[in-house]
Design a protein around this nucleic acid. Structure first.
Lengths: 265, 265
DNA sequence: CAGTTGCTGATTGTTAGCAATCATCGACCA
DNA sequence: TGGTCGATGATTGCTAACAATCAGCAACTG
């Protein structure tokens, strides 16, 4: 496992490439384009790549993530890798034990319950603000994601695709809430929610209704500026998501029962 | 340089001292005593000391925190200081700008609003769980803090004392909620709440009623296992706290209007 | 033979030093 | 004389090497 040879070095260092030509850049676009590459520190980039790898299931649950091999495979030193692992720790993707190292986190049923109860708490606040603050453009963006869901669902959707569209919708909700700390909280919870979402069973018959219709109802409530309905709708939606993930997790737990690899917290 | 002999190092490293003799240590006590020193990494210890310094107002708002002077004054190298500053960043006490350094955060009126709206969201979830889960011992601990508030208030209380007792009460609430992620969220919000609490005006006539009686009502509602009342009570309590802090912040902003200078502590 | 004790290899925690980046300030030019 | 551009000093970002710590294993002892 874990074939060490990978051309990953380029992936980390292409951040310094010159920005591509723009035909007619506005002042704002130019500002964004020019500030993008430099805004990405090495540690952030590494954290991002490790996060992707973890979400893709490249590392097994409970597996130890040693700093030196990771640093070598990415062509950097241990410093930024260390910082990246600390970031992933606060995102709940890894568990760091003093003098022991970082391990891929295992999400138990209790973790699932914690993630979703906390998510309900902060996301209700988010939608409440969105109902009051959302612009038409933001509403259109939400609707666009729902449309993408419908299109993806029509041609058949994978767990991964469904999870990403789902998360993208909720990203927009938090963004429109205009609340920095709320966005940060979501940023810390999001990767765990992502992992959990991959356990849903998209093959279930009512999945289309849940995914597409469920989000559509939220958009409708927000568009109608009906705060109470929006909150109730998102509560129901998250409860439904929770139950589907729990069902999927039980299935998977049953399938891999007695696996019991090391590293469990 | 590492001259070896320097007294400042002791402050950080006296964790390795042999544990003092215990006359009749129980197994649990022994376990606690022996595991305590090693659980504290250097970066954590430094973050703690810097946090205390920031809360004590030792650094002025907007002042830059350079890594090398901090490291020298603490007798360590820049590495752990750097990690400590990142911790303080996620606690909202400092702002780190790439290639620019760390600066003491300034809390605006919008920050105040964000901290309190987020706090209401997560603390309502916390009390809801506490109502269902709290043991008699935890209820007694909450009551004990309220009693301490009454005693402190009777002999006259400073802003600092009031803030610490206030925070201690809410710490216990989160602890009793039995929700790891909720406790982490509170841990990230707590230092900002602490700073804001120092702006309350404890001299106001109704402060005793607010501090002592307000928390007593919460304990009562929890003891009666009345979930809805407990949530409503804590919502009111936090709203009251918000208004007092906002009033104090306005006062202070008025007094120091046009200050705006960075740097000088 | 069970339990404990002292080694050993590997991994993290920490340190010191080098390179890249940014703000500041002075020189140059229209 | 006002404004822009290029040097300069300071500070962060990163690297590589050193020291402390821990799990595992073998030898020892009762």
């Amino acid at each position: 496992m874990r074939a060490g040879r990978e051309p990953s070095r380029d992936g980390a260092l292409n951040l310094n490439d010159a920005p591509p030509r723009q035909s007619a850049p506005s002042a704002a676009d130019l500002q964004a384009v020019l500030s993008l590459p430099e805004n990405q520190a090495l540690a952030v980039s590494i954290a991002s790549r490790l996060r992707d790898a973890l979400l893709a299931g490249y590392f097994g649950p409970g597996e130890q993530l040693r700093e030196e091999p990771l640093a070598r495979s990415m062509g950097v030193s241990r410093g930024p890798v260390r910082e990246a692992l600390l970031r992933l720790e606060r995102e709940g993707l890894v568990v760091v034990r003093r003098n022991r190292g970082a391990f891929v986190a295992r999400l138990s049923a209790q973790d699932l319950e914690e993630v979703y109860t906390l998510r309900v708490a902060i996301e209700c606040l988010a939608v409440r603000r969105v109902v009051r603050l959302a612009t038409d453009a933001e509403l259109d963006a939400l609707q666009a994601v729902v449309d993408q869901m419908a299109a993806a669902d029509a041609r058949g959707v994978t767990e991964q695709e469904a999870a990403e569209l789902d998360l993208r919708f909720h990203d927009l909700v938090y963004l429109a809430s205009q609340h920095r700390r709320l966005n940060e909280s979501w940023g810390n919870l999001r990767p765990q929610a992502h992992i959990l979402l991959l356990n849903r069973n998209v093959a279930r018959e009512d999945f289309r209704e849940f995914l597409v219709q469920g989000h559509q109802w939220i958009v409708d409530a927000v568009r109608d500026r009906d705060e109470d309905r929006a909150v109730a709708t998102i509560e129901d939606h998250l409860r439904g998501s929770y139950e589907r993930v729990a069902a999927g997790l039980d299935l998977r737990a049953g399938r891999t029962a007695g696996e019991g690899a090391d590293g469990g917290r």
